[in-house]
Design a protein around this nucleic acid. Structure first.
Length: 310
DNA sequence: AATTGCGGCAACCGCAATATT
DNA sequence: TAATATTGCGGTTGCCGCAAT
């Protein structure tokens, strides 16, 4: 026998909330609190809604001090940094951003921030290439210095050294998130000819190659269309931290938009779908600069939420 | 002007964790 | 201790508005 539903689905209203419903819910909670029981609340408040729906509406929209609208660059950085360290644990990330909800952050990440970041990825990293020959790909403009530095491999993104300030070092939620040791990470670049002569600490190596090895499927990035079968790598195996190379992105500098601009606004071609990456790629991208992203994460931090949980 | 496609966002769903009986 | 109820969370869906055609 399955679990009983939390409410009678047939008799509850679904879909967008009306202003009247919002008013009812808000007034009720402001007057009585939730009573510690969301399931019973809608009936008491005179709402034909599921308790879960009420809770969600209150937390994501009606509760005081909710911030809507554009995310600041600082918020961008915090989200990115936390994402690369703890993954899609939106509630924890939201706890670091007063006034933001996990749903908001999740939506923001999925619709905007991820794309912004993908704009930082080199063209060659795109997993699904168009069917036309690679020679027709529109590579983004490279500065002369960047071409010197990385040649054909990737778009150079200006190196900076600034970082978050005033933040304590990240405390990771579990051992599985611990930094990867060189012994684990080294083979990933050492096995590449193009990397052979470059020290990992110098890290003037193509992003492409460092990226190639992640994900569970082979990447087809060779100009001749041949595929390189990357080693299959589990998140637990690698951890959320990539090895600490110094390929700093200007994203690291203060403004993610600057980084996009520095790519000539076109790190991904118009002809390519910008979202054909797996999450590890994105994490890898971020973590390539995350060594200087130091944010204190206390998983147990719930003060902000507690303010609204009567 | 009409249609289509896409992006953004609010809300829903299902599962896991936790609390209560 | 087991069963049940409730909460919390993350993934996903579907609607709406806008831009492109």
């Amino acid at each position: 026998m399955g679990r009983a539903p939390c409410c009678d689905k047939a008799s509850v209203k679904k879909g967008p909330w009306s202003p009247e419903e919002d008013t009812k819910l808000k007034e009720y909670i402001e007057k009585h609190g939730t009573g510690g029981n969301w399931i019973a609340l809608p009936q008491k408040a005179g709402l034909k809604r599921c308790g879960k729906s009420c809770r969600l509406r209150w937390l994501n929209y009606l509760r005081p001090n909710i911030k809507h609208g554009d995310f600041s660059d600082e918020e961008d950085r915090i989200i990115c940094s936390l994402y690369v360290n703890i993954g899609s644990r939106w509630s924890i990330i939201a706890a670091q951003l007063p006034g933001r909800t996990d749903n908001d952050i999740k939506n923001y990440w999925n619709t905007k921030l991820k794309k912004k970041l993908m704009g930082l990825l080199p063209l060659s990293h795109h997993r699904k290439q168009p069917s036309f020959p690679s020679s027709t790909l529109q590579n983004p403009p490279l500065s002369p210095s960047s071409q010197q530095l990385y040649g054909e491999y990737c778009t150079y993104i200006p190196v900076t050294t600034s970082s978050f300030t005033g933040m304590e070092h990240l405390s990771l939620p579990s051992a599985s998130y611990a930094s990867t040791t060189p012994s684990v990470s080294q083979p990933f670049y050492q096995n590449h000819d193009s990397m052979a002569s470059v020290s990992p600490m110098q890290c003037q190596y193509p992003i492409r190659d460092s990226m190639l090895m992640f994900g569970s499927e082979g990447s087809c990035s060779s100009s001749d269309g041949s595929c390189t079968q990357g080693r299959e790598m589990k998140q637990e195996e690698f951890g959320y931290h990539s090895y600490n190379h110094n390929l700093l992105l200007s994203y690291n500098n203060n403004n993610i938009n600057d980084a996009v601009k520095s790519c000539g606004g076109g790190c991904f071609s118009q002809t390519l779908a910008p979202l054909d990456y797996d999450l590890e790629d994105i994490k890898q991208l971020i973590s390539s600069s995350s060594s200087s992203f130091n944010i204190n994460v206390d998983e147990n931090k719930t003060e902000e939420k507690a303010m609204y949980y009567y």
